[in-house]
Amino acid sequence: MNIFRLAGDMTHLASVLVLLLKIHTIKSCAGVSLKTQELYALVFACRYLDIFTNFVSLYNTVMKLIFLGSSFSIVWYMRYHKVVRRSYDKDQDTFRHYFLVLPCLVLALLINEKFTFKEVMWTFSLYLEAVAILPQLVLLQRTRNIDNLTGQYVFLLGAYRGLYILNWIYRYFTEPHFVHWITWISGLVQTLLYADFFYYYYQSWKNNQKLHLPA
């Protein structure tokens, strides 16, 4: 464990807690894409299949439980909670996220480190996580102005990915055999997707304006 990875995990944890806090306290999910949340729940479900069979560390297991619990409860809130669901604007959140799932699955079947069920599902979860933010970014473009909690959520998610890239660089230089091209490339693609959001987020922060993305 290195500081970049710990900071990355904490930032990732903060992003889901910010979102859960927003939804739980103000009982609203305005501006949040349910499609992105469903994709994240699927990502964690496919990635943590080995949660009970492959014990890495207590930290690892606890964090997996937190990510699974938070992502599924966010989906539950947005789908079934009688107050929260009313604030979900489904006619704006129209990204056909099923079109993301299939190509990621096919790609995982073609490009993986080991052709086993668990490994293919793990690789599928990596590719899917790389594109899972797209419905949320499209929704932000549509709704133009972003309430600062949703903005913080996307910002923290991007920061977590950026920190993970530093973690991979660190591990590459400190652990001789640590080479995971698949993880690195999909992680890089994911981080690049945030780049333009970061640009507008920084601009709005610098000019102390309300953050809005160009149409």
Partner: peptide, 10 residues
């Protein structure tokens, strides 16, 4: 301790 070979990252 990071488990060698297995996926030890979240």
């Amino acid at each position: 301790a990071d488990v060698i070979g297995e996926h030890d990252e979240l």
